[in-house]
Amino acid sequence: MDRAFRRRLELRFGDRLSGPIRQRHDETEIRIAPADLPEVMRTLHDDPAFRFEFLADLCGVDTGRVMQVAYHLWSDTTPDWLRVIADGLSRDEPRVPSVTFLWKGAEWMEREAYDMFGIVFEGNRDLRRIYMPPDYRSFPLRKDFFIADDAARSPGAGVRPMERTHVPANAVPGSAVRHSKVD
């Protein structure tokens, strides 16, 4: 845990953070609104006090209530991993600015997040499916995914327990999403 780094982040981004800075083990987590993402990322990347030049990971997260995009960054100015979470994307229409203007290598990771969650990255010039077939219509890693449209007609439908083809008849509307304490 790098306390000094936490203070530097607070001083620089204090008004932009949409939640408290969390630190545990060798990780520091900040949360920002999706609209602030390009500016915050550019500052983290270019500012000589931060110099986060290496993008270690980019992934989508569906908490059941909102969508998030989590970025893991590395810099030689701190021994911590920095996790930037673009928080509060709506589950119905998740949109977030792309970071391909800083890391072109994020292009495929954003394609993957689009493929699995349906998160639209504005500014990514190649946002199409990467793993699933191009005519696939749903987003497998979403928490309310029940393989209702595609595999329902496959020979394994209804046999393999993971491939439940529909929400149980007595389910309360909206309860298909696994209840979670993840925020």
Binding site: P133, Y136, R137, D149, D150, A151, R153, S154, P155, G156
Partner: peptide, 8 residues
């Protein structure tokens, strides 16, 4: 049809 898994 939606997928290559489809027997049809």
């Amino acid at each position: 049809h939606a997928s290559a898994d489809d027997p049809r």
